[in-house]
Design a protein around this nucleic acid. Structure first.
Length: 705
DNA sequence: CAACTCCTAATTTTT
DNA sequence: TTAGGAGTTG
């Protein structure tokens, strides 16, 4: 199977073809010569020394030790002192937020001069690389980037076609076979295993499984390889790339084709990577490909905060940095500027129990501050109420809502707290709950846009499936079957197939009218992007559908659509907007409001809050039973504690879903740094029988369900 | 045959 | 709470 097969460019792509990645910058104004000195003046000697180091360097930056400042200073040093053009710097992060933060700090340090244009996330940068030569992934120009949700739909269709729906896989946790399959495919890609290579890889894995302790189910694995192959075919047919593809194909191309690799590597004189402890094989290989000639990499990371193993990240890459980059220097940043003494000491004690660390001990010059509070509650309701009472008390003392965060292990834990906060009328936000661009109405609107842009391209089939019956046009399973059959018979797009498909008259009429309006709007080049979306929403009856709906959420949905329309004004082409929508998560400016933050521990990494609540520290929940890597859970506990600047409150329940024991980390916190089981005034005042219960005092027969 | 209503079951972490 | 399935209605 050739990677270059199945390419069948169709007409109607002019508008899309206008997209061009911006590579070479025009000549850049010179940066102020003293920019680095000014920046370095705020750094510690260790930070400044790291920032100015010439060769390959690994900065082991503990939590709260000024990692971003150091990274920023390093970039400024390249530009202002070494006079490397900003355009020849590659700087990569994991999140859009981190990238934006870095860009703005660099711009500030350089007096408003341009930050590196190749500063972004692994996925964002790799997407730009792939846009430059999509044929390396057997894609046509203007391919779509599909998000996890779209990808899931593809996998679902493939599984159905292979008769895998409903079948119980042998996997022990087969609650959600679709999800498991999606994860498995993502993992193939994270490990640079191609669809063609997956079958062989799976067989090798099965053969090896006798000796490995990891449970391997041959049946599920083989099924995964088969689904992967068909899934990739489906993506290619739709001219679409999923997140994994963005890194997989450029990385493979750089590994296989040295001319291609050299072409890319020669664009950059210096590389910077944030959160290096969290790279997976694909990201690691991608980054290394750029470094082959000069080896000038500046990697920042903290092995104690490696918490993405389940996504293919491997802590080994940071541990063996000096082997990958000969002559590499290693610098430790151990002075913490974030937390007070007791918090830091507790965090140190928890992480110290992890063996196999590169080793670091954080210290602070701050005062000891408040001890960590550890409170036991009878059940989850009591815990939520207790936390809310405490939040009210601190607010009354003058703490802003935005200075308070509730950080939990698993997203389902947010519910109880949200309800309690709502009841108490405390402004709050669940960070990253459902991203703006992941909302159904936004995705529907964007699907309309896709469909209008290339109505006769099979690339738009997925968009068609999404919106043809939204609002209802009488297209159910049966009608779709007919259209699909007609489309594959005539080898045309689903929309085009409506012309000749034998459908019930009313459904056919509705479909044709829909197609007609789409085409008319799509062909009219006089509209701005925003106008186009607005027109499509009206012509398709989508807006009317929401207006007529008596569902409570339709008001919000209309507002979201309005927001999308105004957001669209900031993009030049549909392509840019769609790429942004696929790779971005939240709306800009979302986190600038005065609200209590609720988020998972993973989302909280890199953030800090004066007041932190850490609920549900119970065995099974945290550490989670689902994670086989106990060390990783411990590192997560370390991340959790080190988010707190002034006050950290841990809590756990004797009863959540069955009786539970407190997390083992609770016992790892030394007595001198914590206060256990304190009862708060607010609770007494309310007179509610919300007595914290010490689990260890429960009769032993209650300890196990 | 489509569309709506009701019911049940299940909830790790995500660029 | 919601997502997805089954069953019922039109």
């Amino acid at each position: 199977m050739s990677r270059y097969s199945d390419i069948d460019p169709l007409a109607g792509m002019e508008e899309w073809d206008r997209y061009e990645p911006c590579f070479d910058e025009p000549s850049e104004p010179q940066p102020p010569a003293d920019a680095f000195d000014k920046t370095a003046a705020t750094l510690t000697p260790a930070q400044a020394q790291a920032a100015a180091h010439f060769g390959p360097i690994l900065v082991l930056a503990g939590a709260g030790t000024g990692k971003t400042s150091t990274l920023t200073a390093a970039v400024v040093h390249r530009i202002a002192v070494e006079r490397i053009p900003a355009s020849r710097i590659l700087a990569v992060t994991f999140t859009n937020k981190a990238a934006a933060e870095m860009a703005s700090r660099i711009r500030a340090a350089l007096d408003g001069l341009a930050a590196p244009s190749w500063l972004g996330t692994y996925h964002g940068l790799a997407a730009r690389q792939l846009r430059d030569a999509p044929e390396i992934a057997a894609l046509r120009p203007n391919f779509d980037i599909v998000d996890a949700d779209d990808s899931r739909r593809f996998v679902k269709r493939v599984m159905k076609a292979q008769g895998l729906d409903g079948e119980e896989s042998g996997d022990a946790n087969a609650r959600d076979p679709l999800k498991i399959m999606c994860n498995r495919i993502a993992k193939f890609k994270d490990n640079l295993i191609t669809p063609a290579g997956a079958a062989a890889w799976v067989e090798a894995k099965i053969a090896k499984s006798d000796r490995s302790r990891e449970p391997v189910d041959p049946h599920t694995l083989r099924a995964a390889a088969r689904v992967y192959a068909d899934y990739q075919r489906a993506l290619r047919k739709a001219n679409a790339a999923d997140f994994g593809d963005l890194l997989l194909w450029p990385t493979l191309a750089m590994r296989k084709d040295d001319a291609y690799r050299a072409r890319w590597a020669s664009r950059f004189d210096w590389l910077a990577a944030d959160e290096y402890q969290d790279v997976n094989f694909a990201q690691y290989s991608w980054l290394k490909s750029f470094a082959a000639e000069h080896g000038r990499v500046f990697c920042v990371g903290d092995d104690d905060q490696a918490i993405y193993g389940w996504r293919g990240s491997d802590i080994e890459y940071i541990r063996r940095f000096h082997q990958d980059f000969p002559g590499a220097v290693q610098v430790r940043l151990e002075e913490n500027f974030r937390s007070t003494g007791h918090i830091l000491a507790a965090a140190n004690a928890v992480i110290a129990r992890d063996q196999k660390r590169l080793g670091k001990t954080l210290y602070t010059r701050k005062e000891h501050g408040d001890k960590i509070e550890i409170v036991a509650y009878r059940n989850a309701q009591a815990e939520a109420a207790g936390v809310v009472d405490e939040i009210l008390a601190r607010h009354a003392e003058g703490t802003g809502w935005q200075d308070i965060a509730i950080l939990y292990r698993a997203s389902f834990l947010s519910r109880g707290f949200e309800e309690a906060l709502m009841r108490a009328r405390i402004p709050h936000v669940i960070v990253g709950d459902v991203g703006f661009y992941q909302r159904a109405e936004i995705k529907d609107a964007l699907a309309l846009l896709r469909l209008a842009a290339t109505p006769d391209d099979r690339q738009s089939d997925e968009a068609f499936r999404r919106v043809i019956n939204e609002p209802r046009r009488g297209f159910g399973a049966k009608a779709m079957e007919t259209v699909e059959a007609e489309a594959s018979f005539r080898n045309v797009s689903l929309l085009r197939a409506l012309d000749t498909a034998e459908l019930p008259t009313k459904c056919r009429a509705a479909g044709l009218q829909f197609a007609d309006q789409l085409r008319r709007i799509g062909e009219d080049r006089s509209h701005t992007l925003a106008d186009q979306i607005s027109l499509l929403l009206d012509a398709s009856g989508y807006r009317a559908m929401l207006r007529d709906s008596k569902a409570e959420s339709s008001e919000d949905r209309l507002e979201n659509l309005q927001e999308l329309i105004s957001l669209a004004g900031e993009f030049h082409t549909a392509r840019e907007l769609l790429d942004h929508a696929a790779l971005a998560t939240s709306r800009p400016g979302e986190d600038e409001t005065d609200r209590v933050r609720l988020m998972t521990l993973h989302k909280a990494k890199g953030l800090e809050f004066p007041h932190v609540f850490l609920p549900a520290w119970e065995a099974g929940v945290f550490p989670s039973d689902y994670n086989r890597d106990a060390d990783e859970e411990r590192r997560l506990a370390y991340v959790a504690l080190t988010r707190g600047m002034r006050r950290v409150s841990i809590s756990y329940c004797a009863f959540r879903r069955g009786f539970g024991a407190p997390s083992l980390y609770v016992d790892d916190i030394p007595e001198e740094h914590c206060v256990r089981g304190r009862l708060r005034d607010a609770e007494r005042r309310r007179g509610t029988p919300r007595q914290p219960v010490d689990w260890r005092k429960l009769p032993s027969h209650l300890r196990r369900p």
